[in-house]
């Protein structure tokens, strides 16, 4: 039982990270109907920017909460630049091209980003000293002590806050309305005087910022990153987006949590070596039997 609770806590933490990345997939899919294959690598770049900022601020001796806030903002800002540029270079010219074109372009972009970071930052794994330590312990009298670290609390709380801000943005502001309008009908939206290009750019910026937050959490949580983390995390987050129903924002978060839980429980109870296989199998099974996910709209083919 205690072990189960521990896995649950770990799963929710991991799920928060996946959920934040998944939002980027789901938003881009909603608005331009393509899978942004390079999104996982944007997350990886966010993690690197966060790591670099942590090292720099670590030397200044500023108080921890200030560091966290600064790093958060810096990571969001710089990573958003990447998201914006990728859209302008690799996707925007392809609107209206044949269906697989954006996917191939995105694949190319993903290869570029991965190897660019490898060249610029080296191929070795980058370890970082833990910044937030300690935690709360439960069930102290039992055999298995359940630990909820402050870091886990920080991650989950930050995710909830961001989700709140984000939901407000989408449901209550002009920007959100414009985005939802673009999802429905891009041509009509443009005819109504809404700058569609700008709306799409902003979508990429928001998605990338959230991915960078996930990147920062990843650095803090695992304490080690390399240029390759974007690949696996990207696929899992994509799975999360599909599981929740691609195009649906609450779905992405829900899917993220589910994937986080599935992965941790599989790792905890079945086999650690095959935990990535679990994620991939979920992806395949969901896509085959359940392509609209939990909260997605059914996709009726117009003939």
């Amino acid at each position: 039982m205690e072990y189960f609770i521990q896995q649950l806590v770990n799963g929710i933490t991991l799920g928060s990270i996946y959920g934040l990345i998944a939002i980027g997939y789901t938003m881009v899919y909603g608005i331009i109907g393509m899978i942004n294959f390079a999104h996982g690598d944007i997350f990886m770049i966010g993690a690197f920017v966060a790591l670099i900022s942590f090292i720099i601020f670590g030397l200044t001796g500023v108080a921890l909460p200030v560091i966290l806030l600064l790093v958060l903002l810096i990571a969001m800002l710089f990573t958003a630049c990447y998201g914006w540029t990728v859209e302008k270079l690799a996707y925007k010219p392809l609107r209206g091209s044949f269906r697989l074109a954006p996917l191939i372009s995105a694949l190319g972009m993903s290869i570029v980003l991965q190897n660019y970071v490898q060249v610029a930052q080296g191929a070795r794994v980058k370890p970082m000293q833990p910044l937030i330590s300690g935690g709360l312990e439960f069930f102290k009298n039992s055999e298995f002590v359940v630990t909820v670290s402050y870091l886990q609390i920080f991650i989950v709380v930050l995710t909830v806050i961001l989700m709140g801000i984000f939901t407000y943005l989408i449901t209550k502001t002009d920007l959100g309305r414009a985005q939802r309008a673009c999802e429905q009908d891009r041509t009509m939206t443009a005819l109504l005087g809404i700058n569609v290009d700008r709306t799409i750019s902003i979508t990429f910026i928001i998605g990338s910022s959230l991915a960078s937050v996930a990147g920062m959490m990843f650095v803090l949580y695992y304490g080690v990153i390399d240029f390759y983390i974007g690949f696996l995390a990207g696929i899992k987050a994509f799975t999360a987006a599909v599981l929740g129903g691609i195009g649906s924002l609450p779905g992405a978060m829900l899917g993220g949590l589910l994937i986080g839980l599935i992965e941790t429980f599989w790792g905890g109870y079945v086999s650690l070596e095959y935990k990535d296989v679990a994620a991939f199998s979920v992806l395949i099974v969901v896509l085959i039997f359940f392509p609209t996910g939990f909260l997605g709209k059914p996709d009726i083919e117009k003939v």
Partner: peptide, 26 residues
Amino acid sequence: PVLRLRGDYLAIVTLGFGEIIRIVLI
């Protein structure tokens, strides 16, 4: 099972299959 899927989903599923094979081999 997967060939009924739309083009972009198929791409991701085949990618996943490739990785599964590799992880199993390891």
